[in-house]
Nucleic acid binder design. Structure first.
Lengths: 310, 310
DNA sequence: ACAAAAGTGTTTCGACTACACCCATGG
DNA sequence: CCATGGGTGTAGTCGAAACACTTTTGT
């Protein structure tokens, strides 16, 4: 059979068609805890089918999320598209997932903001409990790996053991390792047996926890080279509040003096002139705001090649 | 109307459905020129509908590309998913685009490898012609921007004028700027008028050139922090061949001594022990191979936060 | 006085740059 | 010999990291 590429663009072939679902990971930070917007008591993410009335994929997503949660979306970016394989073969579902960043506001009664670390306790390297959970899981995974050196190396990379540093971006890789080892509830669901002792963390319906992990990986990577963190901040904030927000997302404690210098050297923020009202402990801090001029700017990115000067 | 998120996952709503198309940007480098696999004499990318017989999205893509071009795919990653808006409202098309990296081999007669820079001449900052094209376009865009300072800043960032360095990753941003300014043929197509003098570069059908630009942006960014460049290399190679390949992709001349040190310091390659057979110009070089152990490794990534040491 | 948080100075260290230079081969 | 490419050494520069320290408030 020969197939004409141009035709593929212009014509529908047979009546074959699939459902397309839009699914959102909506993230906010309040009280310096990262939160995710959920339905059904925290077991599912907002989602809905893409329909012909939608002007675009993102447009459809915004409509569904606002309808289901009462929360309007600000910053949105696409995460990943996948075909659901756990379904009958008759009609397939394509899921297009999105990451949205926002400031928390009161959602409808049907929706709730959940602490993101409820789903991934081992990801919170700021808290002793989180570090303990990670260490415990690493030990169990090492046992599971047995003498498979490839797996063992993977465990070391993912959980920062045997001298390697903890890499906070590997949220998805860690979740997938747990899944493969059968240590998350989702891995054994529908197989008709009660799983052996499972890693801590609340499970979600279908593969929503995996999507959440994908979003977290993306976000933790992205805050390092794009100023998306400000999508999660109020209009004005102190540098320490900014730091606490980054720490909440990254799950890593940061070095205060160096963090300040980093922020200041990048010219990302400007002083508002105001100070935090007193009444709190400690010395009053200057308030800053994000330099709006930068929101559109796409300048410097991370790593470089050893280019030759012109 | 209230909508139940869990239901959205489990049920099909009305008969509403869309076509899903898989589309591939297949890249190889030969003679140190980046090539893209095309059909129809270079005007379209390999593509085909997602069908129920496909076991996965990537699987379907592999089948279509192999069928249309005779070329099997190696490394594949997802690029972006978008809804086509240039179509009748009756049935929508969702396009899921992929980037594939491979070594060039002889395709079917219906398919051809095209020099990537034929589509984006201004992206080749290794060649004087490319630099001239970029300078010319920048001048025309500056004229188009007029006294809109936001647009002017955008031109400066994208084309590295007014003191800013050229950023090779901004392939998509540059293309979109040209599109907005009406300087590419695609922008004015179907509007029933002949465009004013258009930027150099071969146009493609529908939005395929935009997808190609998306792929190039992703690839140029990715070679800096993941060893994907080796997907484009033969089994063994000299360091200079590796450099020339990176230069072909990045469109930037690199500094030889520093490039060697960079590669060696990252332990990405190992000597094969062999040397290039003589008969060429210059001193014979050592041959290297990619350290396969690293293919699965997901270790170090680019930028860092000022973490506090444990 | 003390705790808590804001904020500054400084040293050290390592990576990246740029430049200079030598080596080996073919013509 | 020179052109071409392979390959090494090294001083300068810049930024990140770590440490020590002062300032300003509330209790």
């Amino acid at each position: 059979m020969s197939y004409d590429g141009a035709e593929a663009m212009m014509l529908s072939n047979d009546g074959e068609s699939v459902r397309v679902e839009l699914i959102a990971v909506v993230i906010a930070v309040s009280d310096f805890i990262p939160r995710v917007l959920t339905l059904e008591g925290g077991t599912v993410l907002p989602a809905g089918p893409f329909e012909s009335r939608h002007r675009s994929l993102q447009g459809g997503l915004r409509i569904w999320v606002e309808q289901q949660t009462g929360h309007p979306l600000g910053y949105v970016e696409q995460l990943y598209t996948f075909a659901d394989r756990n379904r009958s073969t008759a009609k397939r579902t394509i899921s297009i997932s999105y990451l949205a960043l926002t400031r928390e506001s009161r959602p409808l009664a049907s929706a709730t903001w959940q602490d993101w670390y409820d789903y991934f306790p081992w990801e919170n390297q700021c808290s002793p409990a989180g570090r303990a959970a990670a260490a415990d899981i690493a030990a169990r995974l090492r046992q599971w790996a047995g003498d498979d050196t490839a797996r063992e190396a993977q465990v070391s990379v993912c959980f920062g053991s045997s001298g390697l540093p903890w890499n906070e971006e590997l949220v998805l890789a860690r979740y997938e390792l747990l899944y493969e080892a059968g240590l998350v509830a989702e891995a054994t669901r529908g197989h008709g047996f009660i799983p052996s002792p499972v890693a801590p963390g609340v499970p979600m319906e279908v593969d929503h926890r995996r999507i959440l992990a994908t979003a977290a990986s993306r976000l933790r990577a992205k805050i390092k080279y794009r100023p998306v963190i400000f999508e999660l901040m109020p209009e004005s904030f102190t540098l320490f509040e900014l730091q606490r927000t980054v720490e909440a997302i990254a799950g890593q404690p940061l070095h205060k003096p160096n963090f300040r210098r980093m922020v200041e050297s990048q010219n990302l923020v400007e002083e508002t002139g105001a100070m935090v009202g007193s009444g709190l402990r400690g010395r009053p801090a200057k308030l800053y705001r994000f330099r709006e001029a930068l929101r559109s700017e796409r300048a410097s990115v991370g790593t470089r090649l050893p280019v030759v000067r012109a």
